[in-house]
Amino acid sequence: QYLKELEAFVPDIAGVCRLAIDNALEDKDFLRLDAASFKASPSDSIDYAVMENTKAAAVIPLEAGWNDVGAWSSLWEVSEQDSDGNVILGDVLTEKVHNSYLRAEYRLLTAIGVENLTIVETADAVLVAHKDHVQDVKQIVARLKSSERSEANLHRKVYRPWGNYESIDAESRFQVKHITVNPGGSLSLQMHYHRSEHWVVVKGTARITRGDETFILTENQSTYIPLGVKHRLENPGRLPLEIIEVQSGGYLGEDDIVRYEDVYGREGLE
């Protein structure tokens, strides 16, 4: 019945959702919806688009202390507060701080003489907002997107089907990444037009394809991938493989990739 109502009131949303499923890819235990189709969906909430219009719904009273925790201020409300009314998570030091939500995930966070604030520190960015205005974070996100900043789409730690990578440092002509490849995982056979790469194995065993060569590297061993050479990184072992990758070149964007083979059936970014 819900799908019928969705079709009746917001056929645009129903249509793009169907396309996202029809064009989805199976990735081991995951079904990855087609991103391009899903992004085309209007941003209306289901409450507004369907529930406020349907005649096929019933409403009954419920007293359950419900909070959908839809904002940082909601987390402050439902979390345990100290004697100053603060919710403190992570490595946080405060002095004369009241009724605030303070969360540190990556670095030491300190606050002095403030109240009614939400302060959230992550590896990607730091948010400081009055509790009454945390919903306005979507305006900041919109500005990040309009200015095409990478923070709008990528975290410092990015997960892929084969594992993950974390950006450690970057400047205009170099970037350093910590790459973790799951046991049995394999990056695509690929090539870059604008950058070369140095790989140092810090944990586990790596199988490297570089041009016509295939060889094994273990801890404290390294290799160099010249610009324009086909290459692949695999983990043939039973333990996670960790490497430090140093990229250098005139352009270091994630879209500088030509993929020749990929066991996950992906196209585009690595």
Rank of each mutant, 00 (worst) to 15 (best):
L252V: 07
F9L: 07
T54Y: 07
I60S: 11
W72M: 07
E171G: 15
W76F: 12
R160N: 09
G185Q: 05
P42H: 13
L3I: 10
V59P: 07
H231Q: 09
S45T: 14
I257W: 07
V141A: 06
E270D: 12
D84L: 04
A152Q: 01
T223Y: 01
G113D: 14
G228D: 07
S186W: 00
A152C: 04
Y2E: 06
L189H: 03
V246K: 14
Q139S: 06
E121Q: 02
V114Q: 03
Q1A: 14
V200R: 10
G249E: 02
L189K: 02
T214Q: 10
T218I: 06
G15E: 02
F215S: 04
R143A: 07
I168Y: 09
L117T: 03
D22A: 12
S222H: 13
A129I: 05
A142Y: 05
L154T: 11
A123M: 11
T214E: 08
I244V: 15
N153R: 13
L6F: 11
R143T: 04
D124V: 02
E121S: 00
Q175A: 13
R160M: 07
V200Y: 08
R238T: 13
D84A: 06
E80F: 09
L102R: 00
G211N: 03
A142D: 08
T218Y: 10
L239V: 15
P161M: 08
C17G: 10
V120A: 00
E148G: 05
L241K: 08
N153I: 08
A206N: 05
L187Q: 03
A64P: 05
E115S: 12
G250H: 14
V263N: 01
Y101C: 03
S167D: 09
D91E: 12
A129Q: 04
E80T: 10
K131R: 15
K131E: 06
V246T: 15
V120L: 02
H130P: 01
Q81R: 15
R259N: 07
D212H: 09
T223F: 03
N99H: 10
S37H: 10
E121C: 00
V69K: 12
Y159F: 08
E5K: 01
Y101W: 11
Q135N: 12
D169P: 05
G250C: 12
D27N: 02
A57I: 11
I244H: 08
F30W: 12
L62G: 10
K55T: 13
N182G: 04
D262S: 06
P42K: 14
V263G: 00
L102T: 00
V258I: 14
